[in-house]
Simulated scan of single mutants.
Amino acid sequence: MLLFISLVSFALIRLSPGDPVMSFVTPNMSPEDVERIRASMGLDQPLYQQYIYWLQNVLTGNLGYSLINHRPVLDLIVERIPATLGLMGSSLVLSLIIGVLFGLISALNKNKLIDRVLSLLAYICISLPGLWFAMILIYFFSLKLNWLPSIGMRTIGVNSVWDVILHGIMPCLVLSITNIAVYMRYIRSSTISQLEEDYVQIQYAFGSTRMTVLFRHVLRNVLLPVITILGLSLPEIITGAFIVESIFSWPGMGSLGINAVFALDYPMIMGITMMSSFLLIFGNLLADVLYGVVDPRIKSMR
């Protein structure tokens, strides 16, 4: 899969409009100087030879050098990936906790006022454009109320965990708001169907309380569809992180990738594309593994 992604991405990047050589051209350069720069960057070779040369370097752990930062691509990604993983991980945890909690509350109060209110909020959150929601948060919480910082990951001169948390609240909320609503709807529908199963009535007959049945028996079965949705939502989280990082100037791979696209930094674009693809494939693999942890029946079928 990674090989296929690299082949398609490499072709699309090279066939896209623009020439990265023009970033190094000055008015006093002759055509021979321009071609010399092109040759030094390896862009004078046929497309298939450029791909083979890039693939050989990648297999040895060399992702190339950034054309605008003049540093190894791998070093730049290693510096930025903790910020991206932290933002993605926080949004996933927030989405799961709030989505599961609200879904259970909505299911236990089926067709009551709180269920209708939560369902309405879920539909609104699913329909919210991320860019617009980010602008609204910045306007109210940063400009009007001055409660949260609007850009960056740290305040200059401040090195504390609380400062990072304050900077990450709005980006994390924007990245997770849609997933919260999706998880809540799936948890609600799954919980309602599970509460009608025979094993629930048997537990009640043995004297189990409603909360015991819910958290000890029902919740485990309810988590199975959530794992599926979690795997399916990873592409949206990864691509959403790029947009969110650009809006809030979060120093992760997203902002690095956006700058690389505008500058036609081919090695950096390919490096970030491959790293994002690896995270996506690894995340789906992890979701498959979690199936066996949550449902032991899957292990017995192997």
Rank of each mutant, 00 (worst) to 15 (best):
L224N: 13
M253Q: 02
L104I: 15
I156E: 14
S160M: 11
S300H: 11
K299L: 10
I124E: 03
P27N: 07
I258G: 06
S40M: 15
H167A: 04
S91V: 03
Q49V: 14
E32W: 10
L285P: 07
Y183T: 02
M170Y: 06
L63N: 01
P267Y: 00
Q49E: 14
Q194M: 15
Y183M: 01
L195T: 06
S277R: 01
L121Y: 03
L143A: 12
K112P: 06
T209W: 02
P20E: 13
I105F: 02
M22G: 06
I156S: 11
G283A: 08
P31L: 13
L2H: 03
L264E: 09
G152V: 14
G271A: 03
L290D: 03
E236C: 05
T209H: 00
I169T: 01
L286C: 12
L175Y: 02
H167P: 03
V73R: 00
F282L: 15
R154G: 05
V182N: 03
V289P: 04
E196I: 09
L214T: 06
K110G: 04
I68H: 10
L285R: 06
G240Y: 08
I98S: 00
M135S: 10
S23P: 11
L12Q: 09
T178W: 06
S30A: 11
A241Y: 02
W54Y: 15
A181Q: 01
G99S: 01
N146Y: 09
R220H: 09
M268P: 04
G207F: 10
P82S: 11
M211D: 13
I192C: 01
L63V: 05
L118M: 01
M1A: 07
G103I: 04
L108I: 12
T212R: 15
Q203N: 13
G64H: 08
M275P: 00
Y186I: 15
S150G: 11
G152S: 11
S208G: 07
A205P: 11
V222D: 05
L94F: 08
G42L: 11
V174H: 02
T60N: 13
